[in-house]
């Protein structure tokens, strides 16, 4: 088995993100198969995701959902949706950071 790190997006079906109300963004990783899920699960660390989004780890909610082959993260928005400093009204671009993260 290769130990070379690869972007997460190349190992799973889809990574998407979206606001969950004005104060949260939620990121869903659809692994696609139970094999991909089992492979990604132990290598995807909540601490890395927290660092990627510059969020304290204790504020990151994580859900591992084997039935759907999904790993889900919810993160409080650093700026509230639509406030002057917001850059992405729907939070949908956040997914790309995780999609590109080497895992």
């Amino acid at each position: 088995m290769s130990t070379q790190k690869q972007p997460l997006g190349q190992q799973v079906l889809k990574v998407r993100s979206k606001n969950a109300g004005p104060f949260w963004v939620t990121i869903d990783i659809f692994c696609g198969t139970s094999e991909a899920y089992a492979s990604v699960l132990p290598r995807l660390h909540t601490s890395d995701v927290a660092r990627l989004y510059a969020t304290p780890e204790q504020l990151v909610k994580r859900f591992d959902i084997p039935d759907l082959h999904v790993i889900k993260f919810s993160i409080p928005r650093p700026v509230v949706q639509g406030s002057a400093a917001d850059r992405d009204m729907h939070g949908a671009q956040w997914a790309h950071l995780l999609d590109e993260m080497a895992v």
């Binding site: 979206k18 606001n19 969950a20 109300g21 949260w24 939620t26 869903d28 659809f30 909610k61 859900f63 959902i65 039935d67 759907l68 999904v70 889900k72 919810s74």
Partner: peptide
């Protein structure tokens, strides 16, 4: 799958 996956959508907690 399509039905159960919908609980993920726009929810912080699925």
């Amino acid at each position: 799958h399509s039905v159960s996956a919908h609980m993920l959508y726009e929810n912080t907690d699925p």
